[in-house]
């Protein structure tokens, strides 16, 4: 890790990071503002409950709209937030290595006495920092929303924290394999295609496994089967062991990225 590079990268990345962070913060904050209206509407809850079980599972809407934890999980964590984080994690991972190699600016970074492994580790730190900041803003957005607009009675802080932690770690793994592609491919497009391709495949497998009982074994082939805000908010999710596994996988992927990048021929 090299401090000068880290600072420069954070500076040039800051605009994008601030945009993402403020957007998720505001969105979740304002979303919680609408909670009291829905919580009182029994009709909407009935409509949702009327949907087929498998559809409820697939789209993560089995919860209870009158609970603010469930409300956030259903309306944000299980929908928009997923797509925002996908875009952020993949685009940032690609920008931090593959784009520099593709456009040739990596030549400058590697002409300094900072080694390849150090450069890659620094870029990985930038990615991890960014992901952490976006998640932190979401966390505070939700929390402040709950403080401002609800009576806090139904809100469970510990479950909310666990949900945010698991979401962040899942996306740490997604960032990590995107970063690995970013380190492996010369072309930005190729790295981006591979990262989005795999992520969308994972997402589709997860959706398919939930929609039909017969193919629910597909859930063993996708990281998104771990993405269950509902289960966390209902308390039947093994947070500790899952977070450990996700962290280890992410670390292994980051180490692999650096060691493969070190051995590669670079067309700079």
């Amino acid at each position: 890790m090299n401090l000068a590079l880290y600072k420069a990268m954070m500076k040039s990345h800051s605009k994008l990071l601030i945009t993402y962070s403020c957007s998720v913060f505001l969105y979740l904050y304002l979303l919680v503002m609408t909670f009291p209206m829905f919580a009182e509407s029994q009709q909407l809850n009935d409509v949702l409950k009327g949907l087929p079980e498998s559809v409820q599972v697939a789209f993560g809407i089995q919860g209870n709209l009158s609970n603010v934890n469930d409300y956030m999980a259903m309306n944000f964590y299980n929908s928009l937030y997923l797509y925002i984080l996908m875009a952020y994690a993949i685009l940032t991972a690609i920008q931090l290595v593959s784009r520099f190699v593709d456009r040739g600016s990596m030549a400058y970074l590697l002409s300094s006495p900072v080694s390849r492994v150090q450069v890659i580790n620094t870029q990985a730190m930038v990615l991890i920092t960014g992901l952490f900041v976006v998640n932190l803003f979401t966390y505070f957005g939700g929390y402040l929303g709950v403080l401002s607009f609800t009576d806090k009675n139904g809100f469970d802080m510990s479950i909310f924290t666990q949900m945010n932690l698991i979401v962040m770690l899942i996306f740490l793994v997604i960032s990590a394999y995107s970063f690995l592609f970013s380190c492996l491919f010369n072309e930005e497009k190729l790295a981006m295609g591979a990262s989005f391709g795999i992520t969308i495949l994972f997402y589709s497998l997860d959706l398919a496994s939930k929609l039909s009982e017969e193919i629910d074994w597909l859930k063993y082939f996708t990281i998104f089967s771990l993405y269950q805000p509902q289960k966390i908010s209902q308390g039947d999710y093994n947070v500790l062991s899952t977070s450990m596994i996700l962290s280890i996988v992410a670390i292994v992927l980051f180490i692999l990225s650096a060691s493969l990048f070190k051995r590669r021929d670079l067309t700079l």
Partner: peptide, 16 residues
């Protein structure tokens, strides 16, 4: 490196 001014870039290289 994109999104930098000349002085940022020179600072980066000096720093590294």
């Amino acid at each position: 490196v994109e999104g930098m001014s000349a002085v940022d870039f020179l600072n980066l290289m000096s720093g590294m």
